[in-house]
Each structure stands twice: as C-alpha cells, then as structure tokens.
Write a protein that binds this DNA or RNA. Structure first.
Lengths: 200, 200
DNA sequence: TAATGTCTTTACTGATCGGTACAGTAGCCC
DNA sequence: GGGCTACTGTACCGATCAGTAAAGACATTA
C-alpha cells in the first residue's frame, strides 16, 4: 500500500486546519496523522524536521494565498477602492466570519512565537504595506494611510478574538462593516456611525 | 517542611504569568511547579482539579482586577471621559504596551476555549457593557455606543496580536492613541486622523 | 523481469505528560 | 505533651509525547 497521497502539498490543507484547531503544541502527531491520513513514517518522509517544518510549510502556503488573493490586488489593482472592498470580502470568507482562527495571529500570542517570528512578521508587514499602498492610491497622505492600515489589520485580528470569545459571528461582521466605512475614499461613502478620515 | 506558602492566593500571580507565557497546554506541571515554587503535592492540595482549576482561579482573579480597576469606574465614575481615559491608561500598563499577552484573549483563540467559555465570555461582555455605559453617559445614543464599545475592546485585543507579531510596542501605543481620539466626547478632542462619530 | 527510488507500515525508544498515593513534617489547639 | 489539621516531598502510575529505524510495498524505469 503506497502512494496514496502523491504530493506533499496535498497534506498542507489538512495540516493547516489541525494547527488552527489545536495550536502548535496541542496538535500531536497522532492528531496530525488522523487529520492527514498519513502515518508517522510518511509525515517524517515529507517533513523531515517534524512539526516545526509542517508549520513552516503551512505558513508559507498561507502567505502565498494572501499574496495572491489580497496583497497583490491591494498593491497593483487599478481600482484601489475595489481592491479594499475585495480584501474585506476575501477576509470574511477566509476567516469564516470569525469562526475560523487566524493561525498566524494565534502563533503570535503563543510561546512558539519566536520559532516562527520571521514568517509571522512577514505576513503582517506585507498586509499592512499592501493596504497602505491602496490607501495612498486613494489619495491619502502616506503617514495617515500607514496608521489607518495598521488599524484595519489590527481590527480584523481583534474581531476574530472577540467574536470567538462571545461565540458570535455577528461581532466579526460588524467590525468588517465598520472598516468598510473607515477605509472608503475620503469624504464619500461615509456611513452614519462610520468615521471618515478628516483631512487637515 | 510545611507552610511555606500560607495562602493559595499567593500562587495565583505566578500561575497567571506561566499560563500567559506558555498557554494552557504548554504550561506543564513541571513549569508550574518551578514558577510557583510549589511541588505537585501542594499544587493538588490547593487545586484538587489540577490545571483546569488553576486556570479558573486565575481567570477569576483577572476578572476581579478588571472589575475593580476598569469596569467599575466605567460604569459608576462620575466623569465618563475620565473613566475612559483611565481605562486606556490601566490597559496600557496591564498589557505592558502589548508585550504582555491577554490570557483571556489567548484562551479564546485556542482549542481550550470551550473549557473556559463562560469565564471568557463574561470577561468580554462585562468590558463591552461597562464601556458602553460610559459612552452613553457621554451623551451618545445607546446603539452607537454599543458599536463603538465593541470596536474599542476588539482593537485592544488586535493591538496585542499585531504588536507582538511585529515585536513593536509602538504599534500598541498608536492603537491606544487612536482609541483615545475615537472615544472622546463627540465633537471635541478630534485628532486629525481620528474618526469622530457623526450624529445623524 | 529486475533494479531503483518513493513512499508506507510497524515497532520501538526515552522522555515527559497529568495525576495519584502516601508518608511525613510543621504549626496550632487542648 | 498529644493529637489534629494543613501542607509538602517523593515515588510512582499508565498514557502519550516527538521522533527513529528498518523492512516492506508499489510505480517507474530500464
């Protein structure tokens, strides 16, 4: 019985899910084996450095997905406003309205942070930079765009935490809607409770 | 050799720190013993139900601290604006500008969430409710105050995540400053990049 | 068909896990 | 002084941990 999972990459989606659900320490090789359908032998064949390499592979795939689906449109999209709206939509889908944890964020607050510091940092730096770029293309000043971008990324992470804590996806939705207003082009599309940036 | 730590409560601060630093699963009894200076015998004498009871005790103490230092002033303070400013100051100190993790938030995104669901939920519900109360006393409409309150609590959690991910306490500070503007009384103290609620 | 390289299974290691049992020891009350 | 209770250290439990080793099974190539 061999070659049931031909590609190492086939396992990465399952790995991501099991690490999201159980964390780095909580995801035992037994759980990982069950989730991927792979025995220890196969796991160590594909990932000779064990769990650490598995997480690094998962983080690389996550980064790639965000690069393609979120960062790249934010940086290069002709319509900055549309790219920002798409970011919020994709993010909502990806995190399942807060029901799904952000693995990168979860690793950042865990004691394993140092092990994956570079990947964690890279993920967030790229996100903030890409969003800032879109905000600048909207016509905002660079410094203000940076603050707003940081604020938006941070709000998404906080929304995941709070909506899980309250077990209420509506909290996540409201946070995204709030962002939709705050990230809209200056002076237009201001929602009644929204907060438009005020130019000096 | 007995009675070296007279009170069970003496251990709780150490317990809180070790759970913050290593998480629920990561905090082994060996680590806990080292952190508290207590052997397994003493630990199980004070907390017969093991780690779970230790965490519950820590959560209860955290809730109490926030109740006294943050929620109660927000609910009952004569000067709502001052209570909000105090909340931001106390929060910054407590979380050490993002260098210290929020245990409740960390548990909320871990797989152990269900074990402590009630305590986690209680912590955040109380926070949002208390802040909303202060915002209403500022003269805001209830619904709007609720949204803004949720948004602020969520931003603090997100600020911890992002500032740890980027290993930069300034990120946390900026987020708190941003909140200082957004939570100020309508129409005054609006910072240039801030976002004041717009009354209908 | 034979050899090769790629996977997979199985059995195993030593360490550590959370938790228990229990014999003690120190302080307190009488 | 003699119990009594409160606490502590140690030895131990079975389970599980991450990781290793090696032989077997299959597909591909020759």
């Amino acid at each position: 019985m061999a070659r049931m999972v031909a590609e190492r990459s086939d396992a990465i989606a399952s790995l991501a899910e099991v690490f999201r659900e159980h964390g780095y320490e909580g995801a035992s090789l037994a759980l990982i084996g069950k989730a991927t359908g792979l025995g220890k032998g196969s796991l160590y064949h594909f990932f000779p450095n064990g769990k650490e390499e598995m997480v690094q592979a998962v983080l690389a795939e996550i980064e790639q997905w965000f690069e393609d689906s979120v960062y790249s449109p934010l940086r290069d999209g002709t319509d900055a406003d549309a790219a920002i709206a798409a970011m919020l939509d994709e993010t909502t889908k990806y995190f399942r309205s807060g029901r799904r944890v952000c693995l990168v964020g979860a690793l950042a607050v865990a004691n394993t942070r140092d092990l994956f510091a570079q990947a964690i940092r890279g993920y967030f730096v790229a996100w903030v930079d890409a969003l800032q770029s879109a905000l600048v293309r909207q016509g905002r000043e660079a410094e203000q765009a940076r603050l707003l971008s940081e604020d938006a990324v941070l709000a998404i992470q906080g929304a995941i935490v709070l909506s899980r804590a309250l077990d209420d996806p509506a909290v996540f939705q409201r946070a995204i809607d709030q962002l939709r207003g705050r990230l809209a082009v200056k002076g237009k599309t201001i929602r009644d409770e929204g907060s438009a940036p005020v130019s000096p």
